[in-house]
């Protein structure tokens, strides 16, 4: 029983990592005022390209690089649509998402069901030997730690740097941002590209570390969970981090429930993250002032440079 508990608490770090990476990317895009509904497709493309490269080269690092770049390349289409052509963000996101899912299946079709070796879990002297906390938190692969580090870096970027300030102003009111001399479209372009890169890395983690194999459709909704996570975390990095771990646990909860012999429909557990997201959104949105502090006001609205 203890073994199962430790396994699930530790495993949640891995299942949380792709959610966290993708959600941090989406957070930045949304903070700039752009909602990108193509994460699922970008993750799928990142996963496919990363797996193909890692399989051929034997290098996970190259795989991650390729997965991230592939997603960024795909996001150029999205950026062109919403920033240059002023197309609707919702429709553009869905269209690019479908293209990404299609491309992943198409490009990696001869890699179906092939497998590679996952990344090794790192042991940290002294810490890993600690009871309970050691095997749970200090026996993870390097990307888990990088993800945590990135969360810290992103949080301080958002709150402490000029870049973070520009990002937030652009998302709050692009017209004011423009009149302050900030480059709205350039900021949004960078934010979208960052978001895509993170989605690609999230996909790469899914196909080369979490489940080191390629199988068409393997992202199965994790991109939508990442989107939920941004809202669940009310557009705050550390809440998203916490939420990612909770959602990661939820994905594994079924195993704990089964090993305890409790009969709960697995569908109820699978729905839990989505239900929790709706509840959190409802609670925070009710207080208009509270959500204003975090949620980008201009989310989903294009900015047309006038005159």
């Amino acid at each position: 029983m203890t073994n199962t508990l430790i396994f699930i608490l530790a495993g949640a770090f891995s299942t949380a990592t792709p959610l966290l990476l993708a959600a941090m990317g989406e957070l930045v895009a949304e903070k700039s005022g752009v909602i990108n509904l193509s994460i699922e497709g970008m993750m799928a493309l990142g996963a496919a390209i990363a797996f193909m490269i890692a399989y051929q080269s034997g290098s996970h690092a190259l795989g991650f690089l390729g997965g991230g770049l592939a997603s960024v390349a795909l996001s150029l289409i999205f950026s062109t649509l919403v920033l240059v052509l002023n197309a609707n963000q919702v429709a553009s996101g869905l269209a690019v998402g479908i293209l990404g899912l299609g491309l992943s299946a198409f490009l990696a079709r001869s890699f179906e069901s092939l497998t590679i070796i996952s990344l090794e879990k790192l042991d940290i002297p002294i810490l890993t030997a600690l009871p309970l906390i050691g095997p749970v938190a200090f026996h993870q692969d390097v990307v888990v730690y990088l993800g945590l580090g990135l969360a810290v870096a992103l949080a301080s970027f958002m709150s402490k740097t000029r870049g973070g300030l520009i990002l937030r102003v652009v998302g709050e009111d692009p017209h004011i941002a423009h009149s302050l001399g900030f480059k709205v479209l350039r900021t949004r372009f960078l934010a979208i590209s960052f978001g895509a890169a993170m989605a690609g890395l999230a996909g790469a983690y899914a196909s080369t570390v979490l489940t080191p194999l390629w199988s068409d459709g393997m992202i199965i909704g994790r991109g939508w969970i990442a989107l939920a996570l941004v809202v669940f975390g009310t557009w705050r990095v550390f809440r998203i981090l916490l939420g990612a771990y909770m959602f990661g646990l939820a994905l594994l909860a079924d195993l704990a429930v089964q090993s305890l012999g409790i009969r709960i429909p697995s569908q109820l557990l699978t729905s839990a993250p989505y239900v929790m997201t709706i509840i959190v959104l409802t609670v925070v949105s009710k207080d208009a002032l509270r959500i204003k502090l975090n949620a980008p006001i201009s989310l989903g609205e294009n900015y047309k440079p006038s005159k």
């Binding site: 073994n3 199962t4 699930i8 994905l251 594994l252 090993s259 697995s266 569908q267």
Partner: peptide, 22 residues
């Protein structure tokens, strides 16, 4: 461990690891 799904590679992996841990 029942997957209750015909297709979920991540759950398969977690289930296998969990059985091994037990």
């Amino acid at each position: 461990i029942w997957l209750n799904s015909w297709y979920d590679p991540a759950r398969e992996r977690a289930s296998t690891e969990s059985l091994i841990a037990e």
